[in-house]
Amino acid sequence: MLTKDQIAQRIAKEVKNGQYINLGIGIPTLVANYIPDNLEVVLQSENGLLGIGPFPTEDQIDPDLINAGKQTVTMAKGSALFNSAESFAMIRGGHVHLTILGAMEVSENGDIANWKIPGKMVKGMGGAMDLVASADNIIVAMQHCSRSGESKLLTECSLPITGIRCVKKIVTDLAVLEISDQGGFVLKERAPGVSVEEIQSKTAGKLIIEGDIPEMIFE
């Protein structure tokens, strides 16, 4: 099984040179730590920053400079600042190439649920609905099963959804999967030491297995 950092490390391999990328809160934020130095990418924060830099040192902290998770950040070289309407114009306009975010559930046709649990206090969707409705490439980072052991990869989402038919790829602690255009989770890679049978038993939606499924390799 992969740790959260290993999930992030595996997702970082999907990043391509020249991309503008929006990273959600949680595991997606960790992806920034694993993007190879030889790639030139720009991280977008939907509260109005292109070019998120590392977290500040104590003497660099600026309360007027935060990311969408309200954490203090710095600006990378060549950054730009803008208002929230402009920020979402970038997102809806298709200028952000890749969105990486967490999820509570994903369905086999690419629907995602990640904002609301009935019976619990609703905190709001923030920018998630805008992001999933707009990005061309959406990768979900999540655990394969919930804490109570229920599969999070379903035929249909049981929770209120955030967006329809939008997820392209999922990286969990057990596997890398792609959403088939015809519906279904196409198994692409296994976590080291995890069997196809285990992934099958923990995937409630339709799992498509074609040929030998390679193990992920971590340097």
Partner: peptide, 26 residues
């Protein structure tokens, strides 16, 4: 949705009574 909120406020100030957005479909 945050982008819809930002754009609804922008539209209010810019005299655009309504607009179409993909956020929240379905």
């Amino acid at each position: 949705p945050q982008g819809t909120l930002a754009e609804r406020v922008r539209a209010g100030g810019a005299g655009i009574p309504a607009f179409y957005t993909p956020a929240g479909v379905g």
